[in-house]
Amino acid sequence: MTLKKEVRVHPIRDGTVIDHIKAGQAMNVLRILGITGSSSAVISVAMNVSSQDIGSKDVVKIENRELMEKEVDKIALISPNATINIIREFGVAGKHRVELPEMVESMVRCANPNCISNTNEPVSSKFEVKKGPIRLRCIYCEHVITENIVEQLL
């Protein structure tokens, strides 16, 4: 007996499939990628899909686009278990897990309004990234961001 696998979203020819996104974070992934719905890009989003590995997950498929390293790092900050599949000619040309960088620069705004990195000084924000529950520590004012990281993304 063969089980017919249910196909929720059709395969794409070229582009990127972001899989194992933490359930509920798909819209934030779109936000990171600057996808607002005003462009003609073909995007498929699946939310709360059951997953053997992580219970439930979100999936985002983007046609004809491969992600930049900075975009992948940002996704890692809100969904550290996500995987990036690069699709070429309907085949998986590359697959890797996102990786949390040890330091992020010009990626997150410090949540302390009185931090020097939030002034007109010629300095970009820099944070040390601590794993476990993700903690971002500003290297200037030492303020720690643990929640709503997505709200602070630049």
Partner: peptide
């Protein structure tokens, strides 16, 4: 501003002593 001394240390060519940053 908090963090001003840390930033100043990046730009200074002499030692910075923090006399209070916010």
């Amino acid at each position: 501003s908090e963090g001003s001394a840390r930033m100043a240390a990046e730009y200074a060519s002499v030692p910075i002593i923090n006399g209070g940053d916010g």
